[in-house]
């Protein structure tokens, strides 16, 4: 970083102080206080009640189902995201831009609509669902349906993290690898992966955070069967509507914990990437 002595807009002390003050106040009011209230509510009945709420058998079942759904969703979207990012950043072909727009659909679509799409297709009245029902396969209102909509909702995250980075890095290093005789897998593992590992990690963490916390889409296809198709996010709603607010916030505190881990990982990944780029920036500044 070069220290600048010249003045820029907003450098006068009183402007600076006002703007920083306003930003800090807004951050505290809009982002810090919500976190504070989650944990104060969760612990408002004391530690014993908190632990009691979390070890309640329905809560434990909900935690188990949630982890199971995430454990299936994340690897599926990891593989898809890497293949898609490789495809659109390493090759030119007609329809490439359309493909990049297509994978943004889950970001734009309301989660309730997402759930409905799957319910219509695979529900017992749907055209695939009725065929499956004849063969005694039920996907909706049971865990496969939850996994399917969660895959839909979280499929852009890994690809979205990888595409800009891989675009920026270019394909020269991999092409050099091909010239040196590397196989496809060697190329990916030895050349590509070290370059994208941190972005990939963040993509996975984001996918996981959303998979664990998805609410709208899951509530359409789950049927909310307590102890069976109740994920943690649905469990929060259920407890809240039973007027068990402290219990709802106890479950919510687990989800908030995952959100906090996600944020920490993101900061770490950005720090690593800034360090990776640092030598490059020095070069360009010296030119």
């Amino acid at each position: 970083m070069v220290q600048r002595k010249t003045m820029r807009a907003g450098d006068q002390p009183w402007v600076k102080a006002t703007l920083i003050g306003a930003a800090v106040a807004l951050t505290v009011l809009m982002l810090v206080m919500p976190l504070v209230i989650i944990f104060t509510q969760a612990f408002s009945g004391g530690l014993q009640t908190y632990l009691g709420n979390l070890t309640d058998s329905f809560t434990l079942r909900a935690i188990g189902l949630t982890l199971f759904v995430a454990a299936l969703t994340v690897p599926i979207n990891l593989v898809f995201g890497v293949f898609l990012a490789w495809l659109v950043t390493r090759f030119e072909f007609p329809g490439r831009k359309a493909l990049i727009t297509l994978i943004d659909i889950p970001f734009a679509v309301s989660p309730v609509v997402a759930g409905l799409l799957y319910l219509l297709l695979y529900g017992s009245n749907g055209w695939l669902g009725s065929w499956l029902a004849d063969r005694d396969v039920q996907l909706m209102f049971s865990w496969p349906g939850i996994v399917m909509v969660t895959v839909f909702v979280t499929c852009p995250f890994v690809a979205r993290e990888l595409i800009p980075l891989m675009q920026q890095q270019g394909r020269e290093e991999e092409e050099a690898g091909v010239v040196l005789g590397a196989s496809g897998w060697q190329l990916f593992r030895r050349v590509t992966l070290p370059n994208i590992q941190w972005a990939l990690l963040y993509g996975v963490v984001l996918t996981n955070a959303r998979a664990v916390g998805e609410f709208g889409a899951v509530s359409v296809v789950s049927g909310n069967i307590r102890g069976e198709t109740n994920t943690l996010a649905l469990h929060v709603e259920l407890l809240y509507q039973d007027y068990n607010v402290v219990g709802a916030f106890a479950s919510a505190s687990l989800l908030a914990g995952i959100a906090l881990i996600t944020i920490v990982v993101k900061s770490f990944v950005e720090w690593r990437q800034a360090r990776q780029r640092a030598p490059l920036n020095d070069q360009t500044e010296n030119r």
Binding site: L35, A209, V212, A233
Partner: peptide, 17 residues
């Protein structure tokens, strides 16, 4: 870092909070 909280926090949790 905190700016990303709304993306990371499940919507149901944001709702009750």
């Amino acid at each position: 870092a905190l700016v990303d909280l709304p993306f990371a926090l499940p919507t149901a949790v944001a709702g009750i909070t």
